[in-house]
């Protein structure tokens, strides 16, 4: 009997993480694309870190930051009853942080690609900054944002290293599909591993295909 829990958990974690990534990432992408401020390069470099540092290192950082041994972790758990480490929320956090740069890169490029004059034209026609973003910037940058969303979702689905560090490998609780595949291979269960690998492969291919279609320009 195949255990569907890892698949369901992975889908759940990926959706929640992508939602958070898009909301946070869009704000950051707008900020990085349109505003200049002190330390912008530092913020940019920080956000892009997960692309280059090993996932286990990222997981270690998260564990140190949100674990019971840190002030923040203790505060979240004791005061707000919000436990991140060794829960599915930890998996969401790991997925968010690792997928954020993959979302921001294309989203930011797309926002920067929207002509400054386009936005100025809207302002000259009496629109507020929010209206300009909603009716001009985002609609014109939507392909890049969509491509980023797909990439972020794919990254969230495949997240392994950092998730293992912060959420652990608790079957039925925090065991996502990539971790379950690892477990299955370790346990000598090629059947289960093959099936999950097939699902992930198919999914990844679909994601890249869709992302590719989005990146073709319409205008």
């Amino acid at each position: 009997m195949i255990d569907f829990f890892p698949l369901i958990l992975t889908v759940k974690v990926s959706f929640v993480a992508t939602l958070i990534t898009v909301v946070v990432g869009l704000s950051l992408a707008l900020l990085l694309a349109r505003k200049s401020f002190v330390g912008k390069n530092v913020v940019d470099a920080l956000i892009m870190q997960p692309l280059v540092i090993p996932p286990t290192v990222l997981g270690y950082y998260l564990l140190s930051l949100f674990g019971r041994s840190s002030g923040l972790g203790r505060f979240l758990e004791d005061a707000l009853g919000f436990q991140i480490v060794f829960t599915w929320k930890g998996a969401v956090l790991a997925a968010c942080i690792s997928s954020l740069p993959l979302f921001i890169k294309p989203a930011r490029a797309a926002i920067e690609g929207v002509g400054r004059e386009m936005e100025d034209a809207a302002r000259l026609l009496g629109k507020t900054e929010f209206q300009v973003i909603r009716t001009i910037t985002l609609p014109l940058a939507w392909r890049g944002i969509a491509a980023g969303t797909v990439m972020a979702f794919a990254r969230a689905t495949g997240e392994f290293g950092a998730t293992l560090m912060i959420a652990g490998n608790i079957p039925g609780l925090t065991q996502t599909m990539p971790i379950a595949i690892y477990d299955a291979v370790q346990a000598g269960e090629p059947g289960a591993a093959n099936l999950m690998v097939a699902i992930i492969t198919l999914f990844s291919f679909a994601v890249l295909y869709i992302a590719g279609r989005f990146s073709q320009n319409r205008f």
Binding site: G115, D120, A121, L124, L140, F219
Partner: peptide, 13 residues
């Protein structure tokens, strides 16, 4: 103030 840009800046969408 009405403003006409050199390249017109029409909204392509």
């Amino acid at each position: 103030t009405g403003y006409l840009f050199q390249e017109y800046a029409l909204f392509p969408h």
